[in-house]
């Protein structure tokens, strides 16, 4: 059975499946919660759950070791975006102390096909990403804070994600071991 149509591109389809599934999830959350802030929170929590699992994928695939400093971390986060979302955000706006930087996205697969209606002006559509980063970093003993500064869905030129190093997490000593 031959068809005249073009063959489906499995990678592209998978990416669209991901994008559309994420969209369906956000739509469902908006339906379930009255408050947009709650939706943001829920997305972050889900991202966290994904992040703590995704870091294992990342480490297994890249074989990378511990980060020397936060700049190293920034580059690894960048390569994580490359591996999983196929995009390379640029790293900019380092704080003088070197504990804060921005990831700038020109394109974002998550927001393909997306338009925000007026009543969702407080919605952080991609908030799942902040959770993913927080979860992933926590698993490698780093506490970070992460938030959106600019968002293309809200008519900014780029999407900017700010990442701040909070503290190093120490190994917990098992009870009765010290």
């Amino acid at each position: 059975m031959s068809r005249t149509g073009t063959k489906l591109d499995a990678k592209k389809v998978n990416s669209e499946l991901f994008t559309l599934t994420y969209g369906a999830l956000v739509a469902q959350l908006i339906k379930d919660y009255e408050n947009v802030e709650d939706v943001n929170k829920q997305l972050e929590r889900m991202g966290y759950n994904i992040g703590i699992r995704l870091i294992e994928d990342f480490l297994a695939r890249t074989g990378s070791g511990r980060c020397y400093d936060f700049r190293d971390t920034a580059e690894k986060i960048q390569s994580g975006f490359k591996i999983f979302l196929g995009i390379t955000p640029s790293i900019t706006n380092w704080s003088p102390a070197g504990d804060e930087f921005s990831l700038c996205f020109e394109t974002n697969p998550l927001t393909e096909f997306v338009e925000l209606p007026d009543n969702c002006s407080n919605l952080k559509y991609c908030n799942i990403l902040t959770g993913v980063l927080r979860g992933a970093c926590e698993m490698v003993q780093m506490e970070i804070a992460c938030w959106f500064v600019q968002d293309q869905l809200k008519n900014d030129n780029i999407t900017e994600l700010r990442v701040k190093f909070v503290k190093r997490l120490e190994d917990a000593i098992p009870a009765g071991e010290d």
Binding site: T21, L85, G86, P109
Partner: peptide, 17 residues
Amino acid sequence: ATGEADDCLFEYLHAEL
């Protein structure tokens, strides 16, 4: 391959759903 999400993301997202 630019702007294409990796396979495993869908699986993780589905698990969260």
